[in-house]
Design a protein around this nucleic acid. Structure first.
Lengths: 214, 214
DNA sequence: GTCTATAGCACGATAGAC
DNA sequence: GTCTATCGTGCTATAGAC
């Protein structure tokens, strides 16, 4: 309940963000938003044109935030493999799923060009960012030359997005962690034959446990 | 519209299956089901206790069907790697997503033990089936000994489930295909150093294009 | 076994007072 | 800028005729 010292439109956006994450677009009603924001009908229709308009504002903010968080990890220190590993192992509320990715399963979001756009842009940006890092690793010899940046990037992102599905199906984040570990094992520089020409595999990769235990 | 020569309860279940796939549980109303099945309110409440009961019947049938289709590919001929590859490349209506996986994003499905159960069982079965195949490949030396069956299985399943997310976000199945190709490249027996002790890498892996072009 | 009628409530939006 | 009142529609479910 964002009934504190922030503006009403701010409370409306934040409440919508929460509900879109928890229940998706079709599962979120204006009434529920208003209750959570502790506001009346009039406030919502004063600040926004309706449910789609408010949802758009909420999705845009979530997208921006997610991009910033991802960049914080992907733009951090370390070799390409280490940065991808850091992205995969970053702390996550696994059972809540991805606030952006989940919207792709929402029929009304997919049906609307406007609502889908920020989702598409965010995921597209992430794919490109990861692809660049993979290419970087390839030039440096950390990844094999037979690997394609866009393809590996897609596999990495898909493992995360699909990991949420496995976790939510079983009601436990363990399946998410397993998938991430599997992908990391496959990506591990020490495993790749063709990269050995340029860089010898580092000392035996210490097995890392994911942070998501919630 | 299942208004042909099948029974009313059959039409109700089939209509519900379609709508759950297209719009999810919260996005599907009894009214929409009845219209598609060309049936009246009374028929539905005669054959089923209500929306959750009808949805359960629909989900169970979809789960059964999906298991059969998967087993058809995973239980087919070929080495473990080839069977996993066949599973990943099997024809899919990518933009429609997974009729079982999508339900994990539905708040009312996750909130209900009954509705989540068939989803959990199906995904759990697939994970186990894939894990067994990976272990098989490990014993045969097709996969490296450092790989874990459960982990690779989870990564494979997650890539598929997450691939749907990427595809639907961009409105094109290309991202799904890219992720699958990336994972196949990583899994490729020819790439694994540690497996070379037992089996030499086969002749250069012919690059395969996915069947999903819809 | 299927139909229509009706219930009570929530949906998304508008109007107009304050 | 926020409120309450009201709209017309659709939701999930029940009742009872045929």
């Amino acid at each position: 309940m964002y009934s504190e010292c922030v503006s009403t439109s701010e409370r409306l956006i934040e409440s919508t963000r929460e509900l879109l994450w928890e229940r998706g677009y079709v599962g979120t009603s204006p009434k529920a938003i208003l209750e959570r924001a502790d506001a009346g009908q009039g406030s919502m229709y004063h600040h926004f044109r309706g449910k789609p308009d408010l949802a758009l504002a909420a999705i845009r903010r979530t997208a921006e935030e997610m991009r910033a968080v991802a960049e914080g990890v992907l733009g951090g220190p370390g070799t390409p493999y280490e940065r991808i590993k850091a992205y995969l192992l970053r702390e996550r509320d696994v059972l809540r799923g991805c606030p952006i990715g989940r919207l792709t399963m929402d029929p009304d979001v997919i049906a609307s060009e406007e609502l889908r756009a920020p989702v598409d842009e965010t995921i597209g940006w992430l794919r490109g960012r990861l692809a660049g890092i993979v290419e970087e690793g390839r030039t440096q010899g950390e990844f094999g030359d037979e690997l394609d940046g866009e393809e590996i990037a897609s596999a990495v992102l898909a493992t995360v997005q699909g990991g949420y599905v496995l976790a939510r199906a079983s009601g436990s984040p363990a399946a998410f962690d397993a998938g991430v570990q599997g992908l990391l094992a496959l990506l591990s520089p020490g495993r790749d034959r063709s990269s050995r020409t340029s860089t010898p595999p580092p000392e035996e990769e210490s097995r890392c446990t994911p942070c998501s235990t919630n």
